[in-house]
Computed example of a mutant assay.
Amino acid sequence: MHYQNKTPGQKMRILFLLSFIAILTGCKDEMLAVPVGAYNYTNHDMSMVWVNGQWVGGPSVNGGGASAGSINLPRKYTPGITVKIQWERSVCIHDTPECEKRDASGGFILTTGSKTVTIPPYDGEKMAEVQVVLLPNDDARIYVENMSLFHKEHPSHKEFGTLIEDGPRPLEGIWPQYSNKPKDASK
């Protein structure tokens, strides 16, 4: 039976069904602009942070969280989604005499770094912020969440226990124990 041989009611039902399938198929690939907040857990001031080329701020030591930009993510999480985090930071330790040194043009002496990070699973119906966590040794993590990094149920606990929950601050003195192996949060 061909489409031309259908009654008007049958044609409407077929068009409705095709539209409904198209809508459902489109929803799974829907991209959403999600605000990004950068959190600095190093002892270096970050002058600029970008995620996938989008500027997202410049958190100072002990700072972060203000969303200055956004990135597009699919509403439906699929394994293997990565983002490229890039940063420009001071070469000196915050608030030391070394930070008084300037380059030839009189500006702060800066260095750059980058890391491609795989995004852990997220709920696309509840995501509120992409959280970029800048860590010692030019390391970084990313979370897509609807809860604060400081919330007791934040997924960072699986790797770090309460380390991130206690707020942005330099972690250089205790970071090496976390840099090569995940921490078992159940201990």
Rank of each mutant, 00 (worst) to 15 (best):
Q177C: 03
P79Q: 14
M127G: 03
W87R: 07
D138W: 12
S70H: 08
S90M: 08
N146E: 11
C27H: 03
T162V: 02
A68C: 04
G113V: 09
P35R: 07
N146T: 11
P182T: 10
I174Q: 09
G80A: 09
N52A: 04
I142G: 01
K84Y: 03
V133G: 00
D95E: 06
L32W: 02
P176V: 12
T25R: 00
N62P: 00
S67I: 13
V144D: 05
V132R: 06
K158R: 14
Y39R: 00
I109L: 09
E100C: 08
R141W: 15
A104Q: 11
K84V: 04
R102H: 01
L18S: 11
H157S: 10
Q86M: 14
V34E: 12
K181C: 04
G106T: 04
V49Q: 07
S148Q: 06
D184S: 01
A66S: 11
K187Y: 09
Y143W: 14
T116V: 11
C92D: 00
I85E: 08
D45Q: 02
E165G: 01
F16E: 12
L32I: 13
F108I: 07
H157Y: 13
F160S: 02
P136D: 10
R169D: 03
G37H: 04
K6L: 14
K158N: 15
P121C: 02
S105V: 05
L32K: 14
S67P: 04
D29F: 15
A140C: 10
W175L: 07
D138I: 05
I14A: 06
P136S: 02
V51S: 05
L135F: 01
L134K: 00
G124Y: 06
A22G: 14
A38R: 00
I23C: 03
G64N: 05
G69D: 07
C99S: 04
L32S: 07
I85P: 00
I174Y: 03
Q54P: 00
V36L: 03
